[in-house]
Design a protein around this nucleic acid. Structure first.
Lengths: 130, 130
DNA sequence: GGTTGCCTTGACGTTGGTGGCAAGGTTTAG
DNA sequence: CTAAACCTTGCCACCAACGTCAAGGCAACC
């Protein structure tokens, strides 16, 4: 399979696939004329990459998962390095959830105060108009 | 007050203040030699900018708050445009919290499955070693 | 042999909020 | 007089994951 077909089957672009290759995530062999040739396993690798990217991982975080798949495992999750990344990412997400909750709280209060202030001003304006 | 003093008092850099000016958020007058001259009100404006940036706003979102302060209000929050931005941002944060919660859930499951798979494999390996 | 459609590499653009440097003018202190 | 400490404008670098364009090679079909 050449790059165009892989891109279509993986739901991405040829540019993206070449980028992943430049980042060492996929390593296709080349045909005599220099075209990239991919096998079915690479399709699964690209799917893994896309899935993890969608969750919010960076390409660096994804590298262990790809290595795990390429080592012959049925899932990219099961190798120690992958598990370590999963743990770290879970902790990061928990941390971010906390901070975002605090921001939500602050925004909520700020909004409530602003609205209260506006209604108060509005009432004063009306009473002056009476 | 000149740019260096304002930067120090606002806890930021001169580079940043010049950037805010290029974005139309602060408009200092100039002394005879071309130096930027800021008054105390600008310090409060910069504090407002920094506070909102810290919450995750972009400079575009902040513009109404600065205009509100500059219109003579004691708080940048109380003008209609500011309230609209606060509402929108609160909705965005709520939305992001939802998605991040879903991601957390998925990560948690993925991690649990990976660990279960590893323990299972480990048991099989041990039983073979017996 | 010309067109079409693949493929190649290379290089620049995007987004936001700065950091850093260059090359120069100003002011103040010693 | 000069050194230090300000200030000015302007431009490049950064991070990430690509998009987009350029200039060209290769393959297949009419």
């Amino acid at each position: 399979m050449r790059i165009g077909e892989l891109a279509e089957r993986a739901g991405t672009s040829t540019r993206t696939l070449r980028y992943y290759e430049s980042q060492g995530l996929v390593c296709p062999r080349r045909s005599a004329n220099g075209y990239r040739i991919y096998d079915e396993a690479e399709l699964r690798v690209v799917h893994e990459i896309r899935a993890l990217l969608a969750v919010g991982f960076g390409l660096d975080d994804i590298r262990p998962f790809v290595a795990c798949l390429r080592a012959g495992n049925s899932s990219g999750d099961v190798c120690p390095d992958s598990v370590a990344v999963l743990r770290r990412k879970l902790a990061e997400v928990d941390d971010y959830l906390d901070r975002l909750g605090a921001v939500r709280h602050q925004l909520h209060d700020q909004l409530a105060r602003a609205i209260a202030h506006r209604e108060e001003t509005c009432l004063r304006t009306r009473s002056r108009a009476d």
